[in-house]
Design a protein around this nucleic acid. Sequence first.
DNA 1: TTCTTATTGTTATGAGTCATAACAATGTTG
DNA 2: CAACATTGTTATGACTCATAACAATAAGAA
Lengths: 149, 149
Amino acid sequence: MTSEILHDPIASRLGYLLRRASSAMMADLGRALGEIALRPVEGTILILIGANPDCTQSDLGRMLGIGRTNMVPLISALSKRGYLDKSPVDGRSFALTLTKSGEEARRQVDKIMDAHEERFARLIVGQDVAGLRTALALIAAQPEDVPPS
Amino acid sequence: MTSEILHDPIASRLGYLLRRASSAMMADLGRALGEIALRPVEGTILILIGANPDCTQSDLGRMLGIGRTNMVPLISALSKRGYLDKSPVDGRSFALTLTKSGEEARRQVDKIMDAHEERFARLIVGQDVAGLRTALALIAAQPEDVPPS
DNA sequence: TTCTTATTGTTATGAGTCATAACAATGTTG
DNA sequence: CAACATTGTTATGACTCATAACAATAAGAA
């Protein structure tokens, strides 16, 4: 069978192309951020806290489409690593800020993400990148991007 | 903090847009295929076997970017459900074909996927869909789409 | 102000995806 | 034949995402 030509009626589906493209970019980002021992999600969280000091982990979850529940181990890990400061604002929530080393890590993440985006931007030169962004944003804005709770 | 405006320096990243768009489409397809109790991966496998009768599960894995290892429970589940026939061709591999009910399921999957794609195609009318496909294919063709083994 | 409801963080848990290591049986090739 | 590659398999671990349940707290309505 390996010698025969396999045809792939799925390759023309938009959803499948999206999934594979997303997976390829995520894999690349994962590899790149691996150099500073961070996962894409963790890098993203550092960026977001840098841009929104004193936000809560629920705020982050809403921005990222990640449920409260699943934010716990993420924030906990970054905190244990000395990247985050938590200061109580409420009786229940904490204002998150970057520590000195957290800010340093954030800078590295930013640089790595820039290079990563550049790598892929080069792949699609000549394409309508603005149109691509618009289309992706339209698709992403579909329901169910809302986290469970 | 909830009252303040949160800004999202990540939302402009292509990789992030891709991930969210892909996630939105996958969620929609998952919901749609849920009506016949199949996951997107399983539906895709039925389509591929329908288009490539007598392929092996390793062939499918290569097409889908899924490792040999992770094909085992997928094929096993579809087989137990009576959707697949396995006939030995080698001393080691099996030629996969759809049973009567597997073919019926495949037809339903095809119909559901068509409707699903249509739903999203309507979202991006006026956009350069051909260009979108081209760009996604370029990104997806990046290394690391190759399964581990 | 009290009663009700909503929010926040948390633990525990399970499904689904993906990767690796190890293995036996079998094919293929030098 | 001997070395190597492929196929299917089991077992296992990381990561993502979802749900249920809970305690503490806050906010809004009666």
